[in-house]
């Protein structure tokens, strides 16, 4: 099958939905403001990005600034979660005493939904970047941590034996054997974590911050601008998709050695 016909295959369903939606909106079944047609959303979105005719009113031309503030929060909270989740996960997976002392507390905190921390986050950090970063961290931290622990615990004991036969110290075992052995599992955690990170940035921006894509989304809802709401939703989806794609690229670069040995590697 050629690449062109393959990409066509993928586009059929979305194109059909968009066309049906356009027709439905223009048919006058619902008031146009309640379900704006895709073409209207696209127009508003374009103005939000490039600022050509102020259809998006106060937001005109401000999309990059909004996207940047959301992305910064995601990057900060996610970055902290990756570093702390991987380090703590390796420690819990490797040393029994760390597991015994730390794991029970973590298991108690883990079922608390990150969004339920919003009131405390606002009290502690005020209305600004910090509560959002805190929430993003909470959302991404647990999946990364749990997957890292799993990866360390399922590392092949024989590889550790082989490395210690070659004179590896404990620190070298962690760096040269346990970490690479846990990497496939860590990446699974990173991918779950990035989804949670975007979800929580948007949630935080709707209640605890006055900028970013989530803020525009919620603000437009108050002003009955459903075209902007839809444009914001699409923007968030797009950025979430792009960051996940980035992690996938990093993953296939880091795990290229799995090539030919796993089911997933069958598709190029």
């Amino acid at each position: 099958m050629t690449a062109l016909s393959k990409s066509w295959e993928r586009a059929v369903v979305p194109l059909f939905i968009l066309a049906a939606w356009e027709v439905f909106s223009r048919s006058g079944f619902l008031p146009a403001a309640l379900l704006p047609a895709p073409s209207v959303v696209l127009h508003t979105w374009g103005d939000w990005i490039f600022g050509f005719d102020e259809t998006s009113q106060g937001n005109t031309g401000r999309w990059f600034a909004d996207a940047l503030s959301s992305a910064t929060r995601v990057a900060a909270g996610y970055g902290i979660a990756v570093v702390s989740g991987v380090l703590l996960g390796i420690a819990i997976g490797w040393w029994r005493w760390v597991e015994r002392t730390v794991e029970p507390t973590i298991q108690m905190l883990r079922p608390v939904p990150p969004v339920s921390w919003i009131p405390l986050a606002i009290i502690w950090f005020g209305i600004a970047n910090k509560p959002a970063i805190f929430l993003v961290f909470l959302g991404a931290f647990f999946p990364i941590l749990m997957n890292t622990i799993h990866g360390v615990k399922t590392a092949d004991r024989n590889l550790i034996r082989a490395a210690s036969m070659m004179g590896a110290t404990e620190q070298q075992l962690l760096r040269h054997v346990v970490f690479p052995a846990a990497l496939p599992s860590i990446f699974a955690g990173l991918r779950i974590g990035i989804g949670a990170a975007w979800m929580l940035t948007v949630t935080a921006e709707m209640v605890a911050v006055k900028s970013g894509l989530g803020y525009v989304l919620w603000d437009s809802y108050y002003f009955l601008r459903y075209d902007l709401v839809l444009a914001a939703m699409a923007s968030i989806g797009l950025l979430g998709y792009a960051t996940d794609a980035l992690i996938k690229v990093l993953m296939s670069a880091a795990l290229h050695w799995q090539h030919g040995s796993t089911l997933q590697s069958r598709e190029g």
């Binding site: 024989n158 082989a162 490395a163 690479p180 052995a181 050695w257």
Partner: peptide
Amino acid sequence: MVFQQANLMPW
């Protein structure tokens, strides 16, 4: 030691 299974680092 040469192990019964090769035990190579797959990465």
